[in-house]
């Protein structure tokens, strides 16, 4: 694309009014060309139009929904920070420690190879589910019933584009709630989250826009019923 062709499209570009391929072509050209002064101001003028509509009161339930999600993620983050600081089992209260339970939970760290061996060790307070789906990845979910906690461990995850992320969900009565965005290293990821097995029907993994979604926007690549 030449500079003249790009100049011709700058108005539409600043309003995101080009088809995807033309948007990319213009963006690529601007990234490597110094001949288009004032483009950032033009883009900003386009963004300013967002302030034109009349203010409108959102329903009060919207704030409650957002903050519920925020507080839920905060508690999961806190559990993960505590685990990072003091070890994988630090979020379990000491009286609940049981050898079999520890063995089951250890697999989240040790890896999938030992999962089968520890399945026999499940106690009344913990159980394991295998995630299945149209993905080369393999996943296991350990649920600690009396703590309402779960550890999800997956390996074989394929690399995603930078604008995509794997996200875990709990599904209750057909309603999905985020269980966290997976941080993938070498195809492996694990995440701990709150899960009440008397309420949650299943757990699923989807591919979402980076940063996560408030509800799944694609079909699960892996899922397990509880």
């Amino acid at each position: 694309m030449t500079c003249d062709e790009v100049n011709d499209l700058l108005g539409a570009f600043s309003l995101d009014a080009l088809p995807g391929d033309e948007m990319r072509d213009v963006r690529d050209h601007l990234a490597g060309c110094q001949q288009h002064e004032g483009v950032q101001d033009l883009l900003a003028a386009g963004r300013s139009l967002a302030f034109e509509p009349e203010e409108r009161d959102p329903p009060t339930s919207l704030k409650a929904r957002i903050m519920r999600e925020v507080h839920g993620e905060t508690s999961v983050d806190a559990a993960q920070h505590a685990r990072d600081d003091r070890g994988i089992f630090s979020w379990l209260r000491p009286p609940t420690f049981q050898p079999a339970l520890i063995a089951v939970l250890s697999v989240a760290v040790i890896g999938l190879a030992v999962w089968v061996a520890v399945l026999q060790s499940s106690t009344d307070d913990a159980f394991v589910r295998t995630l299945a789906g149209d993905s080369p990845a393999a996943g296991k979910l350990v649920v600690v019933s009396n703590e309402n906690l779960a550890v999800l461990s997956i390996e074989g995850l394929e690399p995603l584009a930078s604008d995509r992320a794997y996200q875990a969900w709990t599904i209750s009565d057909g309603v999905a709630e985020s269980a966290g965005i997976l941080s993938v290293e070498n195809g492996k990821a694990s995440v701990a989250f709150q899960l009440d097995p008397s309420v949650v029907d299943s757990v699923a993994i989807t591919i979402e826009p980076a940063g996560g979604s408030s509800r799944p926007t694609s079909d699960p690549i892996l899922a397990a019923d509880l």
Binding site: N7, D8, L9, L10, G11, A12, S14, L15, A17, G38, D41, L42, A44, A45, G46, S48, L49
Partner: peptide
């Protein structure tokens, strides 16, 4: 294309 380019140029200056 021309109208969008002209309009956004004017908005850039006005804002």
């Amino acid at each position: 294309k021309s109208r969008l380019r002209l309009a956004m140029g004017k908005l850039r200056i006005a804002l």
